[in-house]
Design a protein around this nucleic acid. Structure first.
Lengths: 153, 153
DNA sequence: CTTTGTGCGTCTCTTAAGGGAACTTAAGGG
DNA sequence: CCCTTAAGTTCCCTTAAGAGACGCACAAAG
C-alpha cells in the first residue's frame, strides 16, 4: 500500500496532515485536551486497539505534540499531556467541531459547548484576519504564492 | 483491516473526520479551492493514484462537499467545484496552513500567503469568539456537555 | 477510416495497516 | 502467594487501501 508521506511536501496543509492526519490522531488529541491522558482511559474511551494507540502516542510525542510524563514513581505510571505545539493544534479541533455541528448535526444537538472566559457566553469559533480583526474566509481572500511557493500546475 | 467508521460517533470532530479524514481528501479540497478541478489535473498535481482519486471524489460529491458539473457537452467533460458546505470546510484548511506555517516551517518560508480583501493586507486566520469577537482558544474556554453529549468517561 | 491523443475512470495485485487477544513488567493488596 | 491495575509489547490474521496497468469514449489528424 505504501502510503505517500506528506511530510516533505512544500505545503503547510500536507505537513500538518503528516503530524495529525492518521486515523485516530485527532480523536486522541481531543481526549487529551479534555483531560483523558492515560493509556487505558484513552484506549477504552476511544475503542481503539492498543497497538494503534501505542503507535499514535509515540508519533505524537516524537513530533512534540504531546509529552509523556510520569505521574507516579512507584509503580511507574505515565500520562500524556499537550505541549504548546499541541495546544495550538486544538484550534483545528475547534474549527472541526464548528463545521461538524453545522453540517453533520446529530438529532440531539451539539455534544459539547464552549464557554468563553473573556465574555462568559457560550460561543463558537470564527475565523478573523490577524491584521484587521474582521471576519475572513476563503471567499474573501486572494491566495498568493509565498517565498516557499509550491508548484501547483 | 476493518477501519473503524467515525461517522456514527456522537462527536462533531469524528463526524467531520468521517467526511474529510481520509488521506488525500484535504489536499484534493485544497486543489479544488485554488481552481484545480479536473480529474487529470488533480491526479497529476497530487501524484495520487487514479483509483484513490476516483474514490475520494465520489465520496466528497456524495457528501455534498464537492459538486461534479459538466463543462463540455461533446465530448462530455466534468470538473469538480466546491459546494457551500465545501467552502466552509476551507476554514479548516486555512487553520491547517496557519499551524503548518508556524510549526513545520520549511526553510523557504510559507508557500502561500492570503491577502484579505477587507483590509488589503497579507494576514493569516485567528480564532475569535462568535459572541464577543475577541480571540478565543482552548486555554480560554470551558468545555461543557451540550444537548447531544457523548460519554467521555 | 485507421491512428493518435485526451479525459475519466475501472481492474488487478500486493502490501501494510488495523483489530484483537495474549503476554510482559512493575508494583500493590488481601 | 495469587490477583489486580497500569502501561504497554508482541503476535497473528484479515481486509481494505494504494499503485499502476488497463479500458473506453470521443475528437481531431493524417
Amino acid at each position: 500500500m505504501q502510503r505517500t508521506r506528506f511530510g516533505d511536501m512544500a505545503c503547510s496543509i500536507a505537513r500538518t496532515l503528516d503530524v495529525i492526519g492518521e486515523p485516530w490522531s485527532p480523536l486522541i488529541l481531543r481526549n487529551v485536551m479534555v483531560g483523558i491522558g492515560r493509556f487505558d482511559h484513552l484506549q477504552q474511551s476511544l475503542g481503539i486497539s492498543r497497538k494503534v494507540l501505542t503507535e499514535r502516542l509515540r508519533w505524537l510525542v516524537d513530533n512534540d505534540v504531546l509529552e509523556r510524563r510520569q505521574y507516579s514513581e512507584r509503580p511507574p505510571r505515565y500520562e500524556y499531556a499537550l505541549t504548546v505545539k499541541g495546544t495550538e493544534l486544538c484550534d483545528l479541533l475547534m474549527v472541526m467541531v464548528r463545521w461538524g455541528d453545522r453540517w453533520t448535526a446529530g438529532e440531539a444537538g451539539p455534544p459539547v459547548l464552549y464557554r468563553h472566559h473573556a465574555c462568559g457566553e457560550i460561543g463558537y469559533v470564527e475565523l478573523h484576519c490577524s491584521v484587521c480583526d474582521r471576519p475572513m474566509d476563503v471567499t474573501g481572500i486572494d491566495i498568493l504564492p509565498g517565498p516557499g511557493a509550491a508548484v501547483t500546475t
